[in-house]
């Protein structure tokens, strides 16, 4: 059943969720790659990732590869469910 989600509906966050949902379960996307897919600035993307993380919709993992910091993001199960409900809501509008 569809349900509007105010957090997900923001355009950049919607794109972030769509990009993460397209990956197989448990797979992560690097911040740099996500930024290129979503086509957002670093600061803007970082802020929206923070919002989605706070809502429990995504899981952010930070580590180092050598001396370079790396941020990887994955969709959580509650994020997947919320996203699917929101998409169903949008599809229902078109019916």
């Amino acid at each position: 059943m569809g349900q509007f989600d105010d957090i997900i509906h923001q355009p950049v966050r919607l794109k972030i969720m769509a990009a993460l949902k397209a990956l197989p379960r448990g797979e992560q996307l690097e911040f740099v790659r996500l930024r290129a897919i979503v086509q957002a600035t670093e600061g803007n993307l970082g802020a929206h990732i923070g919002t989605l993380e706070k809502a429990g919709y995504i899981v952010v993992e930070k580590d180092f590869v050598g001396k370079k910091p790396r941020t990887r993001i994955a969709i959580s199960s509650s994020g997947r469910t919320a996203f699917e409900r929101h998409v169903t809501y949008l599809k229902d509008i078109l019916k």
């Binding site: 769509a18 990009a19 993460l20 949902k21 397209a22 990956l23 197989p24 996307l29 599809k91 078109l94």
Partner: peptide, 24 residues
């Protein structure tokens, strides 16, 4: 949300999802 807004959002989702899956 209007029908147009919903349609545009769904198109964006499809496009971003496809690009993400391809890059993966």
């Amino acid at each position: 949300i209007s029908k147009e807004q919903a349609k545009s959002a769904l198109q964006d989702l499809q496009q971003v999802g496809d690009r993400s899956a391809t890059l993966y």
